[in-house]
Design a protein around this nucleic acid. Sequence first.
DNA 1: TATGAATGAGAATTCATTCAT
DNA 2: GATGAATGAATTCTCATTCAT
Lengths: 218, 218, 218, 218
Amino acid sequence: MEKIDLSGLNLPEKEQKILEAAIGVFSEKGFSAATTSEIAKNAGVAEGTIFRYFKTKKDIMRGILIQGIQLISGKLVMEPVERILLSSEDKDLRTILKELLYDRIKLVDTVFPIARVILTEVLLNEEVREAVYQNIITRAIKDFRIFHRKMAEKGLMRDDIEPEIIFRSILGNMAMFIAQRKLFGDKFKMDDLDKEFDKLIDIILYGLVNNPATPPKV
Amino acid sequence: MEKIDLSGLNLPEKEQKILEAAIGVFSEKGFSAATTSEIAKNAGVAEGTIFRYFKTKKDIMRGILIQGIQLISGKLVMEPVERILLSSEDKDLRTILKELLYDRIKLVDTVFPIARVILTEVLLNEEVREAVYQNIITRAIKDFRIFHRKMAEKGLMRDDIEPEIIFRSILGNMAMFIAQRKLFGDKFKMDDLDKEFDKLIDIILYGLVNNPATPPKV
Amino acid sequence: MEKIDLSGLNLPEKEQKILEAAIGVFSEKGFSAATTSEIAKNAGVAEGTIFRYFKTKKDIMRGILIQGIQLISGKLVMEPVERILLSSEDKDLRTILKELLYDRIKLVDTVFPIARVILTEVLLNEEVREAVYQNIITRAIKDFRIFHRKMAEKGLMRDDIEPEIIFRSILGNMAMFIAQRKLFGDKFKMDDLDKEFDKLIDIILYGLVNNPATPPKV
Amino acid sequence: MEKIDLSGLNLPEKEQKILEAAIGVFSEKGFSAATTSEIAKNAGVAEGTIFRYFKTKKDIMRGILIQGIQLISGKLVMEPVERILLSSEDKDLRTILKELLYDRIKLVDTVFPIARVILTEVLLNEEVREAVYQNIITRAIKDFRIFHRKMAEKGLMRDDIEPEIIFRSILGNMAMFIAQRKLFGDKFKMDDLDKEFDKLIDIILYGLVNNPATPPKV
DNA sequence: TATGAATGAGAATTCATTCAT
DNA sequence: GATGAATGAATTCTCATTCAT
């Protein structure tokens, strides 16, 4: 079972173990099909112990979402984006994007289980949707807007379409790329990761039209 | 509750009712949290009746997937794509795409519940993933390849990147667009659908770079 | 285990069996210490069956209280009292009381388990107290008031003390008599029931003072 | 929460606190529904500490019963009755009874929680019934017999009925009076306590018959 | 001695599935 | 075929009790 490391969060040892185990089980079976008995076994604690840390099974999910959203909106979104925004002064868009994507995709790779838990819940649960929107999406969009303005001012990014829509497109491209790798990875022969990235970025940057003005790919 | 119409499939009346009800309940609660009792109530049959048509609850899901995949790969993928391929001789790519998307998005709108059921299962269930891959994805890619070759030959679509990747990009853009509308629809003020489509297509076609060669949008 | 017969209530067969079993178990162990598993076993049904008839264990208690209060306020209080009131025209108070007590005590004997359940709950549960007060006590007092007025008019019952207080005294005497028999029955050698009744009534009628005017007991 | 003071018993401080807390919780919820965790919280000790003083939860109940019975049979029964027996030489029965009742009822008022615990257990538990019988009832009856003989010799109390039965009647009257006050106190408008006592005693002494020989009440 | 985290047996409750009608 | 009452295995959750610190 894939395990995600929450040791950076300074939770009590058992709580951390329970959350990590729960992420694994929820990720594989979904919330309803997961049992507290299996979570306990995977966490290496007694079933009763779970309920000392989480009043109900639902509260375990809440715990995951809180930690997951924190993890994602912290490490995953805010920090690297700000880092890249600050250091991107003299790089071209392709380089920046590639750097960004590299970082992002590696990260998503490591947080895939928790991301899948969140995604499944987003599909089924209005409340979680709201939380994700408030805590992840709005912050990401805010960050992207700043980045977009900077790029647009330099003439590197189009300005005729709202940044939200551009952001959505980037997200869609990346999400599909990740989905393909994680869910159907064995079914597509892929080039090495670097070449894949170049193609992905190329599409994101220039679209699918055969444009003579398109600069040559790396 | 959203209801999907399976009357085109010539199933026995009760079986069809049960499937339609199950799609609704599975879509809202997920497979495990859905109860056969609620499905029965929504279908207007006795709980026992369900088990005359489906040996187990899992078999209901199988029934949905079979019908859903059939529905999607039939009405949703093959037929319209072929229609567009045959009639696209003298249209430019934007027109074709817009037509295609219009159709697709309307369709996805109507089959959203079943799509959500399939998507959730794809996330959790290797077996379903396999079925979806075999029945939907490969067929769609095969179709797209034909379309791509035609477009590339006319110089309307780039040829330097594999059609699978182009297809993935289109899919990612569309999926994100739909997800935004269906899951967070109340949170974004949108233009009217037509303008949204234009922007979406514009991004798909030309990417996010501020390219002087980009033709003016409608 | 003592069993009470609820067949006069026209409940569904299983519901009746469950209630009867629950009365037995609640009566012996109290509500909290009773388990649904034991109730099921005593009722001869599967544990799950209980929850088709009663949503929760608390609802079983509610069912008992409803049936019990109905039973008591119907058969136990209203009907016989009215019967005795109507037929008491030419009897003296001792005869009436004896008749009344005979009837009451036999009845209480048969409904002892349910009475014990109600009594225990009355001690612990404000809500039940309220229900008992509304449904049993007020009705009993109302009846007694009518009876008291009639007796007082004939000069057979004292009129210088509120009927509620007289009623309370009768109740207290009877309750203690029953409690002694049911809870400590093996510890006191008793005369035969008839003699016991005479003494009980004698005390109720004339008190404990050595009153020369006291008529000779039977 | 009502708290009973056990400081006269010279128990270790923590044991006393635990017993006092347990009386409160048992009295409100009954034995089974009470949790050791709540007892610990109310006692201001850790949950584990309870089990240093009492091997099991049942042993807490045993501790309460032992202390309670001791308390009742000591302070409540023996001492005051003896006091009254010794000092009653020249008082009439009404005065003696009133004095006795005043004392008793005040006392019962203060020990209501523990009395409720004992009563509930008496209803459910044969063992406790036995202990109460041996330690409280027989002693009380023995005392009352002495009192009764003295009164009967003076011609103040009837001699034609066994003292046990007279005692039972007094007890029943008092118990019902207390029950009404404690359990349904808010539902009956009462006179002031003194008048209530007079009526109660009047009924106990003279019964409910309209007896011309009955002396006028105070 | 006191603590309170951890335990796990046992309780209430749910629900897919069966089957007599 | 259709029904829905009955089932009981499985699940979540509680809580008395233990024990390392």
